[in-house]
Nucleic acid binder design. Structure first.
Lengths: 187, 187
DNA sequence: GTCTATACGATGATAGAC
DNA sequence: GTCTATCATCGTATAGAC
């Protein structure tokens, strides 16, 4: 892997583990096995490198989610597949966690990929809810965008509960709770 | 206010704004208008002071939630009141945000108040769901603990969505989505 | 492109005077 | 109880040699 590549990948890992504030250039360099000179040659500084890392992470998350949401099955089944998709629950969401980082939120450039990804996800899920309404699987009275927000929030909040308790069980419980409420009545 | 008191309050504010990793003793001292000596006289160090601050914040959140959950109304109405309760949405949850802090999660003493508070909250809400089932307001098939997890996760995840988008609207949307699913059918 | 040197403020804490 | 050194290390970056 090229040096810039290693720098980006190391930054992605550290942002996930420790967040932006908790990630120092020094730690990145050690993990990437690169020197200071390399980093400042390829990137303008910590924010610039973080931006590259965040963009890639956001793109990756989008692709993963799209893979599940565009899969086979009824609208309910596709939302269920998204909610039940395998996750490293205790590590938290690599995109959502950035939201708690004051320096990320304060920097519009860093916040943008986070915002866009979560917004895209809500829109995509809302579309599926609409499909479900059209097919009669979901009640016509449902507000697709609100349901989508609840779905994404349950996932993001599930990470919080899981990390607080040190166990993925709370995440799974929340997901099951939401799915039970969302389940189409009668076949 | 006494000096230890000012130190704890300043720490609470900074933990909320910047998290544990992003909060330095120096920043605490400036905000509390105290000197280094004072801080190390009253507390053993940063973790010790943070523990006092976290415990107080957790206790406060418990009291606030209890005030709403123990209020008047049907079970559904009390859960609704909790979900719709006024919040400083864009500031995030002072307890839940700690969950994304690697140094808090790594320290069992610091994590304990966070875990206990969120766990208590889920239990309290589950109890209300049980009441609702007993009264026939909620379907007997509902799993109270799972519904409670979904409720708390929606709130915690709502903060994430709101902070990502820079607007409380996403939080409100998630809450309305969940409430629409939870609403008792027929009167 | 990568390395070393250098810089300067911040971090987290200790020691001892008052 | 509070204040002022003092300290070693880290964080973030620039300069210039190779």
């Amino acid at each position: 892997m090229s040096t810039p590549e290693r720098l980006i990948e190391s930054t992605r890992e550290l942002l996930w583990e420790r967040g932006y504030v908790g990630t120092s250039p020094k730690a990145i360099l050690e993990r990437a096995d690169a020197g200071q000179g390399s980093m400042y040659h390829h990137f303008k500084g910590k924010p610039d490198l973080a931006l590259a890392a965040i963009r890639r992470t956001a793109e990756e998350m989008r692709a993963t989610a799209a893979g599940v949401l565009d899969g086979p099955g009824t609208p309910y089944e596709r939302i269920e597949a998204y909610l039940r998709r395998e996750r490293d629950v205790l590590r938290g969401c690599p995109v959502g966690r950035l939201t708690m980082d004051p320096d990320v939120i304060a920097n519009p450039e860093l916040r943008a990929p986070v915002d866009e990804t979560l917004d895209w996800l809500r829109g995509r899920i809302a579309g599926i809810v609409e499909e479900g309404k059209a097919q009669g699987q979901f009640a016509p009275g449902m507000d697709a965008r609100e349901i989508a927000a609840a779905v994404v929030a349950t996932v993001q909040g599930g990470y919080v509960l899981a990390r607080a308790s040190g166990s993925p069980a709370a995440f799974d419980a929340g997901v099951r709770g939401l799915l039970s409420l969302l389940a189409p009545r009668s076949a």
